[in-house]
Nucleic acid binder design. Structure first.
Length: 722
DNA sequence: GACCTGCTGCGGCGTG
């Protein structure tokens, strides 16, 4: 064994020998040296099952044993985004910690009260917790934070990429800052991740004040060989002799995936249900045992656990047809192939999904991409003619092969999460002055883009008597108002993200899962759910329960959803594909034919020379050549001028009424800085959990920092009209 | 034009 091994504490060495490891992995040896030789923060980047957890914990636990800190509280803190991940990781650490005689404390909503009570009484060892449960500790035990974490040497943040600039990520970074302030010293931060688009930004997220001193330990090369196929399917030309695109894809999946473990990412829960239903039927028709199962967040925990266990079981070939539920690091073992039906929304997600396949030595990762495009008729829209779904799939595969993926967006204000954290700081301290709250959250914490003016404006909004979240005591101290007390008291406060209300689906006394409330259902209606067919029997509005029983036929339910967000670079690459002449070797004859059609229509529409094409007296297409944020900013501006606008990848379909002025003239006015108030009219700016407490101007400010880019409007309009 | 994630304290009851 190496010199790194020699540094470890005896019990840890003993555990490694017991495991029968012949040597430490490279990232583990490097991480051990870095943790022993420096006090630096650290990012460990390696694929799933690359030994990241041990890379962090072998040296950390060794240090706890060899150099007792003397303080009180948990020695090490681990924060993970999923309860299932915490349970997995707690079991992994149990072995090492048993040898080291350190307690391992998993802590999330499903962990029993007795374990928590015991840990609070004598906090030590490794605490594994979700951001929400950590939040709850700050609110319920605000004054005990220093006692609970006084001895903490390091915090390990798992799946770092999932918390980079999400609402939850901002919340977590705020809590970590508040933790350091409570114990009056920094705690070493260690991020674990597989997919990071931009390491410098990731470092800045991990430690904003000292990004350059964050050490990076990346698993070198060793990426599995990638086998890739993109198949095209035409929908809308089915007759008695040819199957629908859905049936053809299901048949292809059935033929190639049966007999091994696979993941099929279908993109939407409704499509998951459709494909799982077709594949189940194929198994039944051939009298073969069932091995295709649906997996998405609306399905019951029981069913999801069953599918996950089957995937792990080497004796039972299993294919899960799923949404992004099976994207994160919960342990389901290695899969043979990853299939993607329809274009994904980000290269990062595609990469993360592909990371599930080809993990065993000498085995290639396999990606099967299915593109479904409409059969063209004389009435077909330009979206179908340009085959935008297929083109996006090609662009994303292209960028994946180059190793690129979307970086986080560091400029967002996150005002909804700021409201949450203001309430949390006040609750933790039982009251705080405005300047203390500002220092904690905006100077030390993650809300650095928030100026004192905006902060004061937020305080005024949530302190307004009609809102009543906070109020000011005579001493100037900020306290929770009546509405604030009520909000913070309820357990639903801890999560910073919004979730819709849902109905529970029950069959024969068993929970099948949930359906969003906007589904219109009535007794007698047929339903496909959880991979089977049902008929609705009763609907209980007050209890939010739908009772169903098995049926012979069914229709997939609608689940709702929101708009996607495609990066500039992806759109840019899509135009390069349309304007290029390369025929990638991984494409089949149908998809290549579609690509040729798309290119021919692109030439015909003349976008190579012109960005605006008139296709009728009242209708034009604009090729914006930029991503969702900039394209939707232009869409908002044009709508405020009276145009009706439809948005697609890098394109706008613009229609004007009789009264509307000339499109080019309007673009000219916008480029000269003459845009109207683009938020004046319609458009719902309330999209996050605490947005309802803010007023219009603050909501506009928040939107402009993340969803809309006003600064691009001038140049974009100028480029488009010339 | 989509997906995912999370949750405390306490009263009441049964059991050893």
């Amino acid at each position: 064994m190496s010199s790194a091994f020699d540094k470890l504490a005896r019990p840890v060495q003993k555990w490694i020998r017991q495991k029968g490891w012949r040597e430490l992995r490279d990232i583990q040896a490097r991480s051990i040296r870095t943790i022993y030789e420096t006090n630096a923060d650290l990012i460990v980047a390696a694929s799933t099952a690359g030994g990241k957890t041990e890379a962090a914990f072998l040296p950390l636990i060794s240090q706890v044993l060899d150099e007792p800190s003397g303080g009180t509280g948990f020695d090490l803190l681990y924060v993970g985004p999923l309860k299932a991940l915490i349970t997995d990781q707690a079991m992994r650490l149990e072995g090492i910690c048993q040898e080291a005689e350190l307690p391992v404390v998993p802590w999330h909503g499903d962990v029993s009260q007795s374990i928590k009570t015991r840990a609070l009484k004598s906090p030590k060892g490794v605490l594994l917790i979700t951001p929400e449960s950590l939040e709850a500790l700050f609110i319920r035990r605000g004054l005990e934070i220093a006692r609970l974490f006084g001895a903490t040497r390091a915090v390990v943040i798992d799946e770092l990429h999932t918390v980079l600039d999400s609402e939850r990520g901002v919340q977590l970074r705020s809590l970590l800052t508040r933790l350091e302030l409570a114990i009056k010293r920094p705690i070493r931060r260690i991020g674990l991740s597989a997919t990071l688009g931009d390491m410098d930004l990731a470092k800045a997220y991990l430690r904003p004040d000292a990004a350059s001193s964050v050490q990076l330990i990346e698993a070198d090369g060793g990426e599995a060989e990638l086998r890739l196929q993109l198949r095209g399917y035409l929908s809308g030309d089915e007759d008695e002799n040819s199957p629908s695109a859905t049936d053809a894809i299901a048949a292809h999946l059935f033929k190639h995936l049966r007999g091994s473990d696979n993941l099929v990412f279908a993109g939407a829960r409704q499509r998951v249900e459709i494909y799982a239903d077709r594949l189940r039927e194929l198994c039944e028709r051939e009298h073969l045992p069932q091995e295709f199962y649906p997996h998405h967040a609306s399905l019951s925990r029981e069913h999801r656990d069953f599918v996950e266990r089957r995937l792990k079981d080497p004796g039972k070939p299993t294919t899960a047809v799923c949404t992004s539920t099976l994207e994160l690091g919960i342990d389901i073992g290695d899969v043979t192939c990853v299939a993607q039906i329809g274009a994904p929304f980000s290269v990062a997600a595609l990469r993360q999904r592909l990371g599930r396949s080809g993990r065993r030595e000498g085995q290639a990762a396999i990606l099967r991409q299915y593109a479904v495009e409409a059969k063209l008729t004389p009435e077909s829209s330009f979206v179908d003619r340009l085959r935008l779904g297929l083109i996006r799939s090609i662009a994303m595969i292209d960028l994946l092969l180059e190793g690129w993926c979307e970086p986080p967006k560091p400029q967002a204000l996150h005002l909804s999460t700021l409201v949450h954290q203001i309430l949390s700081v006040i609750a933790q301290r039982g009251g705080a002055s405005a300047s203390v709250v500002y220092n904690v959250l905006c100077r030390e914490g993650p809300f650095r883009k928030v100026t004192t003016e905006v902060f004061a404006d937020v305080l005024r909004a949530i302190g307004h008597p009609e809102t009543g979240l906070i109020e000011q005591a005579g001493s100037g101290l900020l306290l929770l108002g009546p509405a604030g007390e009520k909000l913070v008291e309820h357990y639903s406060f801890y999560a910073v993200f919004q979730t819709p209300e849902e109905f529970r689906l029950v069959a024969e006394g068993r929970d099948l899962g949930t359906l969003p409330i906007d589904n219109v259902l009535a007794p007698g209606m047929l339903l496909i759910f959880s991979g089977r067919r049902w008929v609705v029997q009763e609907i209980h509005d007050r209890e939010k329960i739908i009772v169903v029983k098995p049926a012979k036929a069914g229709v997939p339910p609608v689940f709702g959803g929101d708009a996607g967000d495609i990066h500039d670079k992806v759109i840019n690459r899509m135009f390069a594909v349309l304007e290029g002449d390369i025929s990638p070797a991984y494409m089949d004859t149908v998809s290549l034919m579609m690509l040729e059609e798309a290119r021919a229509h692109y030439e015909q529409l003349g976008f190579r020379a012109n960005n605006i094409r008139s296709i009728g007296e009242h209708t034009s297409i604009i090729a914006t050549r930029v991503g969702t944020v900039k394209t939707s900013t232009l869409a908002l501006a044009l709508r405020s001028e009276g145009f009706s606008v439809e948005q697609h990848d890098g394109f706008l379909l613009v229609e004007n009424g009789d009264e509307t002025p000339d499109l080019r003239a309007v673009l000219g006015r916008i480029s000269a800085g003459g845009a109207r108030d683009i938020f004046g009219g319609a458009g719902n700016l309330v999209s996050e959990k605490f947005h309802p407490y803010l007023h219009h101007e603050l909501l506009v400010l928040d939107a402009c920092s993340s969803k809309v880019d006003l600064s691009c409007l001038g140049r974009l309009s100028e480029r488009l009209r010339s």
